[in-house]
Amino acid sequence: MSLVKLDQVHKYYGDFHVLKGIDLNIKVGEVVSIIGKSGSGKSTLLRCINGLEAYQQGGIAVDDKEVTSEDIQVRRLALSVGMIFQSFNLFPHLTVGENIMLAPTIVLKKSKQEAEKTARAMLEKVGLGDKFDRYPEKLSGGQQQRVAIARALAMNPKVLLCDEITSALDPELVGDVLKVLEQLAAEGMTLILVTHEMNFARDVGDRVVFMHQGKVWEEGNSKKLLSEPQTEELKQFIGAVL
């Protein structure tokens, strides 16, 4: 059964045609890596899936519910789609624990005790059980990003969108974040990630989607696609990043 379904999605920024008819079906538990050159529309695609950006043609459905960028819709969607950003976007005035508990208490109306229990469990899961009372600025980038993952997980999403979540990190911190993603994948979480980590895409991902000039240029099983690219553009791209 497909959890995320895109049907001929077109998106424009003014006159600029960013997404040119994207078709995509993502099943429950699938790990899909989106790769492609800068400007090919990868972030835009993710942001359309959770309604942060409006699209002009076609259709997107998550869990059989249509996605639009209406405020109410985005909020309903937030219950099933989590998103993690390149720049973490933690709330600097709140402690790690408060960051994670904020949405569960005011959106899901959980009690404080219940929210705290979930928050501690999620922090444990990302390997930061001892950081509950710290402020984000006291953490390394890798730790902040793992807090952001815990914050998204506390809303119990069905799918997590990750937009280059290791790109802002020092190389030695990337591994910790990828390990968390790998563990989530193993537990059956559906992941859609825009990434430059080709090893991760090949070894952990099920499927790779190569975007080029606003189109899905090539897609398929991650190991096969990365070892035997069919198009000239993907060959070039793989040559450039490896």
Partner: peptide, 24 residues
């Protein structure tokens, strides 16, 4: 990113103002 993070967590406009934007 502060607005966007709030939005994808499901906070509405007033909740975002009150808990995220105004305190900062």
């Amino acid at each position: 990113g502060q607005w966007e993070a709030s939005r994808v967590l499901g906070l509405n406009f007033l909740q975002t103002l009150r808990h995220v934007i105004l305190p900062q």
